[in-house]
């Protein structure tokens, strides 16, 4: 396996997938972030998106500032603990200096004083990590999406979902309520404890190698869903996996979700025969309503044909490499 393949968080442990389970597992090691070789590229892309369409990528409600500082504290400590050569943090009481060796930046600010930062705290710290950062607040035994920096959405709108409860956010997922998953997962989140982080995966398919699949630009990237053929499926279709890490913030009772999105073109996936088998099983058993929801329906036929060909042992990779 090459490096990109070996670090890809392939989500299927077997050939079936339970769409309504709480598939969370304890997070080990307990770090909210991961730096991959794509760091420079993704940080650059993130900042470009933030500069170009800020309100699409960043939203917050006014009373989240304290929780945002907790996120800054958590993420910067995790960066320096997990990658001590790349990231440094000096603290002189509330005067913090953060050094990012990968971007060559040095940030000085007064912890707790938003005016000492060029952006809001969450917007600031998110610019140094590949992950999207979503902050839910727990108020009166309910969870609300109250702030987020989202540059790589899987076709969902931060602007529209801001302020929603957990159940309201997930209203569009077919079967999510009827199958009891909504209540089960909400209860799990409400009882999450500080000091015990969790992780879960979420997967989808994307036609085209786009991390930034915003619903605002759906007319631009969505058309590729209709351009898939059996010949281009291997390079056009990507398995998109979001590694979500969940942390309870001890001071404000907020919950931080960090979302690291990984993409793998099918032509690389199929080289792992075991992955190809499991993936093919999962995709061919995909219920229609989930396929619709994940936007797969328009290219289901060419996708199946492509996988069938691969399963038959066609050596298509070689042709694609030549193209």
């Amino acid at each position: 396996m090459n490096d990109a393949l070996s670090r890809f968080p392939f989500p299927f442990k077997k050939g079936t997938y339970d769409y309504y389970a709480n598939n969370s597992i304890p997070l080990q090691p307990p770090y909210s972030i991961e730096v991959t070789p794509a760091y420079q590229h993704e940080i650059h892309l993130k900042r470009r998106l933030l500069n170009k369409a800020h309100s699409r990528c960043y939203q917050s409600l006014s009373h989240t500032e304290e929780a945002q500082w907790e996120v800054v504290e958590l993420v910067l400590h995790h960066l320096t603990a997990a990658y001590p050569k790349e990231f440094l943090l000096h603290k002189e009481k509330d005067n913090w200096t953060f050094i990012n060796q990968l971007t060559g930046e040095e940030e000085r600010f007064v912890f707790g004083d938003a005016a000492s930062l060029p952006f809001e705290p969450l917007d600031f710290v998110g610019r140094h990590v590949q992950e999207d950062l979503i902050l839910m607040m727990q108020r009166d035994a309910e969870l609300f999406l109250e702030a987020g920096q989202l540059c790589f959405p899987g076709n969902w709108s931060l602007v529209f979902k801001l302020g929603m409860t957990f159940h309201e956010i997930h209203e569009p997922i077919p079967g999510f309520f009827e199958r009891g998953a909504a209540d089960k997962i909400r209860t799990f989140l409400l009882h999450m404890e500080a000091g015990r982080p969790w992780m879960r995966n979420n997967w989808s398919l994307t036609a085209g190698n786009f991390l930034d699949t915003f619903p605002e630009t759906y007319h631009e990237w969505g058309i590729h869903r209709h351009r898939v053929t059996v010949d281009n499926a291997g390079s056009l279709i990507h398995l998109r996996v979001e590694v979500q890490k969940l942390f309870r913030l001890p001071g404000t009772q907020g919950i931080l979700f960090t979302i690291h999105t990984h993409m793998l073109p099918l032509k690389q996936l199929v080289r792992q025969r075991e992955w190809l088998h499991r993936f093919t099983q999962v995709v061919t058993q995909l219920p229609d309503e989930i396929a619709d929801y994940k936007g797969i329906t328009p290219y289901k036929q060419p996708l199946f044909a492509y996988l069938h060909k691969q399963m038959e042992g066609e050596k298509e990779e070689k042709n694609e490499i030549r193209q």
Binding site: N22, I25, F188, W198
Partner: peptide
């Protein structure tokens, strides 16, 4: 055995 859990007090049912 990866059982999801949360409260460890019999309160959440996870």
């Amino acid at each position: 055995v990866e059982v999801p859990f949360a409260c460890r007090m019999g309160r959440c049912g996870t």
